[in-house]
């Protein structure tokens, strides 16, 4: 446990002169009035049958300053474990992640399977910092569905570090409505062969909200498949940030990795920053990235209105269809519907 005054904590925060945070200036966005800077928050976990949780120590990984701070302020790291071969029924629900630092470690043992639902939402003026570490053992599977929806004056950092052994599967779907600043970061370390990862997400922002979806994927084993598609919708004076990096190591032959970020600017006062990056050291791979930023097609809108669909409805239908693509592959109907309902509510 560390003890520090709020201003001292803030002085440790990353800021825009650091490459990885250049569009998301955490230090500038937080003030001493934010509650939770120096305290821990206890996540509320709804454990499905067969999944255990106990307080323990954090596994040390080099995942950056924010996870390190989380570990420093949180007195315990919640260790969650799914035993070998267990196909867990029903989701592990995680909420109450607002107003402090939280530290969790999830281990999905060999051949086991787990669905997580994370809800990152809380009251006004909270600072929240979650450090989630995940270990996926051989042949295991994890689906992580993340919903983040904070008040416009709340600041949140959520970092997930996922180490994946061979033939494990990660399916991740994030939906973010931002806050004063929200940084949702995923770091995936594919350490074995034949890992399959989907890392999709969408952010929908209005007012002066800010969401940063950052992904970092390191691929060290052969025959891994990575699919990343992030959709952004921004209006008013909001700001969307996407940073994606695939680092394909020399041994990672036959990697098939694709990254996309597509953003829709619904007004011209918004800002979208995107940095898709590939760093490839293996020679027999199929890797691609794409990035588009655009507006709704006026011709398509006219066509819809000609058929009698009012303008506002035409816009929301097109926007919803654009966002929904990020969740196309989510094969849990209820979960998908719940994400789409949130999108529809935002659009209404």
């Amino acid at each position: 446990m560390i003890h520090m005054q709020p201003d001292a904590v803030i002085s440790h925060f990353p800021h825009k002169r650091m490459e990885a945070w250049k569009w998301t200036d955490l230090r500038m966005s937080v003030s001493e009035e934010h509650m939770g800077l120096t305290r821990a928050v206890t996540p509320r976990l709804t454990l499905p049958d067969g999944v255990s949780c106990s307080p323990g120590n954090r596994h040390h990984g080099s995942s950056g300053v924010m996870p390190t701070l989380a570990a420093g302020f949180a007195p315990v790291c919640w260790n969650i474990r799914v035993p070998t071969g267990l196909n867990v029924q029903g989701p592990l629900r995680i909420d109450n992640l607002s107003g402090g630092h939280a530290c969790m470690f999830i281990r999905v043992d060999k051949g086991a399977s787990l669905d997580i639902e994370e809800y990152h939402q809380g009251p006004d003026r909270r600072f929240s910092n979650m450090d989630l570490q995940v270990h996926l053992a051989e042949g295991s599977r994890l689906r992580r569905v993340v919903v983040q929806n904070d008040p416009g004056n709340a600041v949140r950092v959520a970092t997930a570090c996922i180490a994946a052994e061979k033939h494990s599967i990660l399916e991740q779907y994030m939906l973010s409505f931002g806050g004063a600043l929200s940084r949702l970061e995923t770091r995936l370390y594919s350490e074995g062969e034949g890992i399959e990862a989907t890392m999709n997400g969408a952010y929908l922002l209005d007012g002066r909200r800010h969401t940063d979806m950052t992904g970092h994927v390191e691929i060290a084993g052969s025959h891994c498949t990575v699919r990343q598609s992030v959709k952004g919708v921004v209006t008013d004076k909001s700001r969307g940030v996407f940073q994606g990096k695939f680092h394909v190591k020399q041994a990672a032959q036959h990697t098939d990795a694709r990254m996309r970020h597509d953003a829709l600017m619904l007004s011209d006062t918004t800002e979208v920053r995107a940095r898709p990056e590939l760093e490839i050291y293996a020679d027999d791979v199929a890797c691609a990235h794409g990035n588009t930023i655009g507006a709704l097609d006026e011709n398509v809108l006219f066509y819809m209105r000609q058929r009698g669909i009012p303008q506002a409805r035409s816009r929301s239908m097109l926007t919803e269809a654009f966002v929904a693509e990020a969740f196309d592959d989510l094969d849990d109907a209820a979960s998908k519907q719940s994400l789409l309902t949130r999108v529809q509510e935002w659009l209404a």
Partner: peptide, 24 residues
């Protein structure tokens, strides 16, 4: 009238180049 009001009033255009509506 707005385009959608004209449609409601019964006006229909079969477009020379029909538009694609992605995702719908």
């Amino acid at each position: 009238m707005e385009p959608e009001e004209r449609a409601v009033a019964g006006l229909f255009l079969s477009f020379q180049y029909p538009l694609e509506i992605p995702g719908v």
